[in-house]
Amino acid sequence: MTLSERLRELFMARGIVRNFLLEDIKVKYRRSVLGFFWSLLNPLLMLIVISLAFAALFPGTRGQYTLHLLATLLPWTCVATSLEAGCRSILASESYIRQYRFPKLIFPMRTILFAFVELLLSLIALFPVALFLGLRPGPELLIIPLAIVLLFILLVGLAALAAVAVVYFRDAEHLISVFLRAWFYLTPILIPFEAIPEKYKTYFALNPMYHMLEMFDAPISRGVLPTPEVMLVATLSAVVAALVGLAVFFKMEDHLIFRL
């Protein structure tokens, strides 16, 4: 199949993706009216606990530190859930794949979209908290939608790659969760970039996730636009991840069923 045929098939399947997404939202939030608030409680409590424990270690006020946490921890949660659920997505959809012909990218897509719904809801719901912590809304916040789009592109590529890897090597799933934990500590989330010793900063700046999260962090916690360099690196890493991820995924797509 050519690339354009695959993309066309994907486009035709958008109704299925929408239905899957609605299904996931319903199943998760139907149980209780408080459903969504319970799932908000998790990042909120994380924020409180970490800021209580760490804020004193870093320059600036507690409010600033907590705002930085909010701006980086929420997108990171989205990264972690996208990849943890995304890497299992093909295996978990075996019963569908054996029954019908699907463009199989819809399965990782479904899990990522759900993670983004949660990211959006929690960004909106925690907005008052951010105001309370000293966020002064300005035009630089308009960069956030772009940051979300870039993060989405990055995660589609990474999740597609991870999903294929797990079909071929079942234990890749464990490796991915270890990798995610390491990535979390190597990304300036708990420790803001400014607080990292000068001599290590260049190394930390090699991490594309730093640039990605800085797209959220700069406008939210410092009220400025991300630097052009940050935007450039974030865009490039998203595009490269998506190109590599999709190239591998499309190449393997038709063989996946023989390995399920």
Partner: peptide
């Protein structure tokens, strides 16, 4: 439309 194994993939929660 292929109908192979009837009874696939219902989501019990729905």
């Amino acid at each position: 439309i292929p109908i192979f194994t009837v009874g696939f993939g219902f989501n019990g929660e729905l």
